[in-house]
Simulated scan of single mutants.
Amino acid sequence: MKQNIIALSIATFLCILITGGYSVTLYRDVQKQLPEWKESVREALVEALQIEVRKRGNIPVDVITVNSTEVQTLEEKVPDSVTLTSKYGRKTYQIPREKFANSLIKERRKRILLSVLLEKHPVSVDTLNRNWDSLLLAKKIVADTYIRYSITDLQEYTTTTYSRKYRQNLQADSLTPCYMGFRCEAEVTGFVLYRWWQMIDGWQWGLLVLPWIGLCIFMFAYRRIVPFFKEEFKEKEVVIHEKETIIEKEVHVTDVRAKTIDIYRFEDGTSFDPVKRILRRGDKEKKVAPQITILLKLFLLSENLCLKEDEIYKEMWKGGGAPTQLSSLILRLRNTLKEISDITVIYDGNKTYQLKKAHSIEKNDDYSKEVSTRQPSVTESNKA
C-alpha cells in the first residue's frame, strides 16, 4: 500500500510539473502574439470606421463656409489649429498633433465635409461595434469589445456614448483613439479583452491534458496489470518447486499407505491428479492452482493427514511467510475442495490443520474460533 501511494505521488508530481511547464510556454506564446493581435484589432476598428464613412460618401452637402486665415499651399502642412465662423461667432480651435496623426482622414476638404456629415448623420455606436466584431472574427481573433464615441461641439462641450457591451467589459484594454472631422472633434476609442484560451489550437489543449491521460493509464496498469504479472511469476516459481517434489501414489483419506500410482483417491469418491492439477468427482472437474496443489499434496503425504503451521511455513515459504498468507492459503484450499468434494480442512486449536470429511467434523470451540478469527485476515490480505 505504501509503495502504491509513493508511485502515485511521484506520477502526480511529474504530471503537475509537465503541465505547469507547458502552461508557461503557452502563456509566453500568447504574450508574444499580443502586439500582433493589437495591431490587427486596431486595423479592424479603422476599417469599421471607414465602412461608416463610405456609407455617407454619396450624401450631398449644400454649402459649407469655412473662414480661415491660413495660407493655402500645394503641400498642405499639418495644422496646429483651424478657424471657423459659425452661429457662435468666429473662433479658432486647437488641434493637438497626436489627434491629427491618428485622424481617419487627413485631407482638409474631406475633413470639412465629414464634420457636416457626422453632425447630420451621426454614427451608431452599436452598429460600429458589431461591424468591428465581425471583422475580428474574420481575422480569427476572439475578444470582448466595446466602443466609446465622443463628440466635441463648437462650444467645446463633449458628449460621450458607449456601446451596449460597456458594462460587461470594464477590465478591457484601450486602443489608440481614432479621430474624425475638421477639428478632429469626433473621437472613437476601442476597448478589447482577449479570449486567448479560445484562440489556442485544439492540439495544444490536447498536449496540455496528455500527461493526465497518461497518469490514468499508469494508475490502471499499476493497480491491475503489475499485480497480475507478479502473481504469474509467483505461480511459475511454485510450479518449478512442485515438479521437484512430486510423488506418485494412490491414497485414501483414511489410509495414506496404499500402493503407489499417479492418482490420489479420497473416500468420498474424489480423485486428485497432481500432475495435471485436477480434482475430479463423477462428471465434475476442478482445476487446482499450483500453490494449492503443493499444499494438498503435503497434507496427503503427511501422517494422519495433519500439518502443523511450522511445517507449512517451511515447505511453502522456506520458513518465512506471515499468518495472513497462511490463512489465505488455507481458505483457498477449503474453497477449492468445497466446490467438488466433501473433504475440507479443519483447525484443531493447537496450530495443526487436518484434512477431514465435512460431515464428520466436530464443531468444537477451537474450530469455531479458527473460522471466526482467521477468515477476516484472509479478506484483509486479499485487499492488500
Rank of each mutant, 00 (worst) to 15 (best):
Q3T: 07
I6G: 07
A7V: 08
L17V: 06
S23Q: 09
D29E: 12
E36P: 13
V46I: 09
E47L: 10
E47K: 07
V53H: 03
I59H: 03
V66S: 10
V78S: 15
V78C: 15
D80S: 15
V82P: 00
Y93M: 06
Q94S: 15
E98K: 12
F100G: 01
R108C: 08
K120P: 04
P122E: 03
T127F: 00
W132C: 02
L136M: 11
A138F: 07
A143W: 00
D153K: 02
Y157G: 11
T158D: 06
T161V: 06
K165P: 04
Y166V: 03
Y166L: 05
Q171E: 14
D173E: 09
C178K: 09
M180L: 00
F182I: 04
C184I: 05
E185K: 02
A186E: 03
V188E: 00
F191M: 11
V192A: 03
W197T: 10
M199N: 14
W205F: 13
G206K: 09
L207W: 12
L207T: 12
V209Q: 12
R223F: 09
P227C: 06
E231Q: 08
E231T: 08
F233I: 14
K234D: 14
T245V: 10
I247E: 14
H252F: 15
A258S: 15
D268S: 04
S271Q: 11
I278W: 02
L279C: 03
K284E: 05
K286R: 06
F299H: 05
N304M: 13
K308L: 14
G319K: 01
A322E: 05
L326N: 08
V345W: 00
Q354I: 12
H359V: 11
N364P: 10
D365L: 14
K369G: 12
K369F: 13
S381N: 15
S381M: 14
N382T: 11
K383D: 12
A384H: 07
